[in-house]
Amino acid sequence: MGFLDQIAKQFRGEYAYTPELVLKEMREKGIKIRVRGLTKSFGGLTVLKDLDLDVYDGETLCMLGESASGKTVFLKSLAGIEHPDSGEIYIDEHDVMNAPPRQLYEMRLGLSMQFQQGALFESVSALENVQWPLVMHATVSPQEAEDRAAKDLVSVGLTPDMHWKLPSLLSGGMQKRVALCRAIVERKALILFDEPNAGLDPIKCAAIDNLLLRIKKQFKATLIMNTSELFTAYNLSDRIGIIYRGKIVEIGEPGSIKSSKHPYVDEFTRKSKEFLPQILAYQEELASWEGEKVDDGRRDSEHLGKTTGGF
């Protein structure tokens, strides 16, 4: 009875740590996260199957894969909110798979995550959303928390008049930014991003990419990012991992992914191979552009674009 075990653990709460030997090896090689043989299935559907991965300290790793290939499940497993069937996950000295809930909370003090659907609290404003983790952990004074949150929001292009709006009144792109802010506001050493720019138009996508690039350069954090946008992955990552049928079939620097011989990776990147030179050519022609942005002042009402987004 998994559920009973879980409850029992909650009451007993023996902490579980990474085995000495593994920890030593991880420290030597500069590995922050080690995943071995991770397996998860839902009913008859095996989503992750014997997945192995090492994530180095301070690197930016993009996980690419089709939708429903298990990217989100993998990321949630790292954060300890999805419970894989078997395997090992070590984050620094914590043994995530066997840690009792109390230890998980301690471990999570060292990481933050941006959820695919944003997971913003609908009942409070954008600013309160962003300052929430700071306020809850009470590491800084409430005033300081608000200042930091506001500063971060401004830095991602949300002007102070947007700060007190409820998330549902913001456009899709703005909600993504608020979610991003909430993930970075505490400057954790490990940040997990789940599809930070999925579903946005190309220009907004580019804006978020630039933002992530800035985050990557400014903080010396380890970033793990799920995405299905090849272009983003090429732009941002130190390494790219491709998930297929529950395994990582290819992992390496962007260059080596582009020239991979693996048939699936080839299929996945074919479209980009065809069009990447063209995109870069367009960008080149624009590189020297200096002029005014054209705006007819409709941004305030943009939120309605979201609610009427379908038909």
């Binding site: 954060a79 909110i81 909370y105 999570r108 959820f115 944003g118 997971a119 913003l120 609908e122 983790p133």
Partner: peptide, 22 residues
Amino acid sequence: GTMRVKEEIEAQDVMAVNPIQY
């Protein structure tokens, strides 16, 4: 329920705040 569906509860969990307490 809505918070669960929108992953707000998971989000609190990841931010190291126990959603049962909160």
